[in-house]
Simulated scan of single mutants.
Amino acid sequence: MKKIVYVVFIIAVIGLAVNLLGNRASQDTDLAKEIDSLLEKGETQIDLTGLTNFKWTQVNLFGPYTSDEQIEDSMNIKFKGDNGGIDYLDDRFLLVFANEKHAVKTVVLSGMAHGIYTIKDNKILVVDR
């Protein structure tokens, strides 16, 4: 009987861990560095489809003090994961990549050091200097 209780407990813990950790957006620091490098070189339009190596169907950009709930409402997704601190910091912007109904990756962009960021055609990061 103890073995059955133990097995049920392990299955419950694994299920809870998968639910809490599954579908979490991780921060892509390599992509952030690549975008920053292109911006430093003077690029004003960056095609994100050519820089990413993961599957995504939509991308959006969020400014300082944006909450996770606002991201969810704006993109009509479930957002769990790394928001780069934009909910309480005013020196960064966040790109959120989603595949269907879940965020998959985030990218922190530094303040307005390069200009004003926008997204065009759900794939191009535009910087207005």
Rank of each mutant, 00 (worst) to 15 (best):
A98S: 11
F54W: 03
V107L: 03
V107M: 06
K78V: 14
A12E: 02
E40G: 13
S37N: 09
V59W: 01
K101Y: 03
I119Y: 05
A25S: 08
Y65R: 15
N23Q: 06
K80R: 13
V59G: 07
V107I: 10
V13N: 05
K123N: 13
W56C: 08
D30T: 15
L109A: 09
V108A: 07
V108S: 09
E100H: 10
F54P: 09
N60T: 06
D82M: 09
G115K: 11
L95T: 11
E43C: 11
L89V: 03
G84E: 04
N122S: 09
L109H: 06
V59S: 05
M1E: 02
V18H: 05
D90H: 04
M1Y: 03
K120H: 02
L38R: 14
F93M: 07
L51F: 01
F9N: 11
G85A: 07
V7Y: 05
R92L: 00
L48C: 05
M112W: 00
S26H: 10
Q70F: 00
V127H: 03
T29I: 13
F93S: 15
N122L: 09
G22F: 04
K55H: 07
G115V: 02
V8N: 09
D28N: 15
E69L: 08
Y6C: 02
I86R: 05
D87A: 11
Q27D: 00
A12N: 10
D30G: 13
L20N: 12
S110I: 06
E34D: 12
G84A: 06
P64K: 15
K2E: 09
F62G: 06
D28A: 06
D36V: 07
V126M: 06
I14E: 00
V8P: 00
I4E: 15
G63E: 11
V13A: 15
T57A: 12
L38F: 00
V5S: 08
T118C: 01
D30C: 04
D91G: 09
K80I: 02
L94S: 05
I71P: 04
V8Y: 02
I116P: 01
G15E: 02
R92Q: 11
V18P: 01
N60V: 02
A12F: 08
I11Q: 04
V13P: 03
D47A: 12
V108I: 14
L89S: 10
T118D: 12
G22S: 12
V127Y: 03
N83L: 10
F93H: 15
V59A: 07
D82K: 13
D30L: 14
